[in-house]
Design a binder for these strands. Structure first.
Lengths: 157, 157
DNA sequence: CAATCTGATGCAATTTCATTTCGCTTTCAT
DNA sequence: ATGAAAGCGAAATGAAATTGCATCAGATTG
């Protein structure tokens, strides 16, 4: 799908705040609300906008700790990796999981209430997997930036 | 702010999809649309819901690569750390930045179009900082999970 | 124990917003 | 030129959010 300057401006706006009315969006980018509606609908259908969600403050739900874990696997057999991926996907505390090339194999970003919850999770996710050679835990002292906005400025793809 | 079962159910729902109408939400949790409206407004005001945003697919904007960088700093002087934090915050490609205890000092999750863009960013963010002892780059081969939903089930805080 | 205060509810009226329709303009390839 | 395709704005329609109001349950107090 081809995106013009209007689309990009809309994306930039709704990435910051999806509650702005289409009228206001139109005023901001110089378009009628009908045009805004059509463009947003199209971008939703084409998957440019994956979804629109409420971002909840973890602290208010008791999730005070962000922990980053680097996991090294024993075997790279595909079925074993898939099983691990599935267990990470299924775990609500796992906010993000990347399968990476480099020193380790998986990087996880997790949200936990306290260290006990984390150690409990390591048991479930790592020890019981039988395919984890080792893991390194990094505890976040400060979540400097936790953003969701994809850069939109500069050139198109 | 105290959250009851209704609030939690609402949070769970709007974390998945913030476009559901308040009527439908009400039907789902057994509440009138007015009550849903009031509860959502309250949670917005109290910061339980930080914001509601559209999640954009990076690939559609040409951001094909996710890179994780572990940065080790030279000095932990507060003013120097703050300067670094600010430069990370200001960089749109930096999706997340954590200041961590452990082997390294910062963990960054970045979104870039290609490796060139990344090496360019390392120049701006790391080499020009004069406070980076070294950094390790992990390239994501598979973004297994990139979620935003804070766990809501189980016990309250 | 009764009075009262608080916070939250549902209903219904109102207002705001999203969505569709329609006629018009532009672009581009015939 | 000409017709098809794409996109626009204004206005009509339909849906949703918001608010006023009467009410109710639970806690607090005299």
């Amino acid at each position: 799908m081809r995106l013009d300057q209007f689309d990009l401006a809309l994306l930039e706006a709704v990435q910051q705040d999806a509650t702005i009315s289409q009228q206001d969006l139109g005023a901001r980018v110089n378009l009628s609300s009908a045009a805004v509606n059509r463009r947003l609908k199209k971008m939703n259908m084409h998957g440019v906008i994956r979804k629109t969600v409420a971002l909840v403050d973890p602290a208010h739900l008791g999730y005070a700790l962000t922990v980053i874990t680097e996991v090294e696997v024993e075997s790279e057999r595909l079925d074993l990796l898939d099983a691990m991926k599935r267990s990470f996907l299924a775990c609500p505390q796992v906010q993000q999981c990347y399968y990476v090339a480099g020193a380790c194999d998986f990087v996880l970003v997790m949200l936990v209430r306290n260290m006990e919850e984390y150690t409990q999770l390591t048991r479930e996710l790592f020890f019981e997997s039988n395919n984890v050679k080792g893991f390194k835990t990094l505890v976040s002292m400060s979540n400097v930036k936790v953003g969701t906005a994809v850069p939109v400025g500069s050139e198109g793809h």
